[in-house]
């Protein structure tokens, strides 16, 4: 037998899947969303260059505890969805639905934290037009929060179908589709949190 390294052997045993999990259309949508967030992040980073003092001063007024809590919530939501997919692959329909419900609750928690965070800012007289930094802050975080809401709606449909036994180990593409979108919402926040709250 010709020399074959471990990687090649693994590849022979488990050839890579040609497509990512879920419907291909959701991945096209995800790439479009990621392109939009890319443009926003890079615009923020390079605009900051011309307003270093303003951005640093305003970033100190942000509630990084709320930002951290929301990061923990989104990561936990992503984990719950990954557990839901793992459960349905073992034909465990009810636990899978419960994991999806838990993920939606983390989304609710995220929006509650955002509500109080925005509320504190509005109470202090800070809004979208206060200065350039806060225009970016509200635009970025509100745009992201809209994606959290959309992600929860998608998960809601997936959850309902999971409750009625609509998925199985053989057929769970719809759940994987919803899961992919929810993970994208988490992935974007992983960059947004340090960029806006931490990097001064």
């Amino acid at each position: 037998m010709p020399a074959m390294n471990a990687h090649a052997l693994r590849s022979v045993g488990h050839p890579p899947h040609p497509h990512p999990p879920g419907d291909l259309a959701i991945w096209v949508f995800i790439l479009a969303e990621l392109a939009a967030f890319f443009a926003l992040f890079i615009t923020y980073a390079f605009t900051r260059l011309r307003h270093l003092e303003l951005f640093a001063e305003m970033q100190r007024t942000l509630d990084s505890d709320a930002g951290m809590l929301n990061t923990l919530l989104l990561i936990t939501g992503s984990w719950c969805v990954a557990r839901a997919v793992a459960a349905i692959k073992r034909n465990r329909c009810r636990p899978s639905a419960h994991w999806l419900l838990a993920a939606m609750l983390t989304g609710v928690g995220f929006l509650v934290v955002k509500y109080f965070e925005y509320g504190a800012k509005f109470a202090a007289g800070i809004g979208l037009e206060t200065n350039l930094f806060y225009t970016f802050y509200f635009a970025l975080t509100m745009f992201h929060a809209m994606h959290v809401v959309l992600g929860m709606v998608i998960l809601g449909f997936v959850w309902r179908k999971a409750l009625s036994g609509g998925y199985s180990a053989q057929d769970h593409r719809g759940m994987e589709t919803g899961a992919a979108y929810w993970h994208m919402v988490d992935l974007v926040w992983i960059i947004l949190f340090p960029l806006v709250y931490v990097m001064r």
Binding site: H17, P20, P21, W79, A82, E176, L187, I191
Partner: peptide, 22 residues
Amino acid sequence: SALKGWLIIEDFMALRRVRLFW
């Protein structure tokens, strides 16, 4: 952040065993 994103893409999004293109 890079490590976190990497874990989310590879393990939560489950792309680890998907072809290199994606």
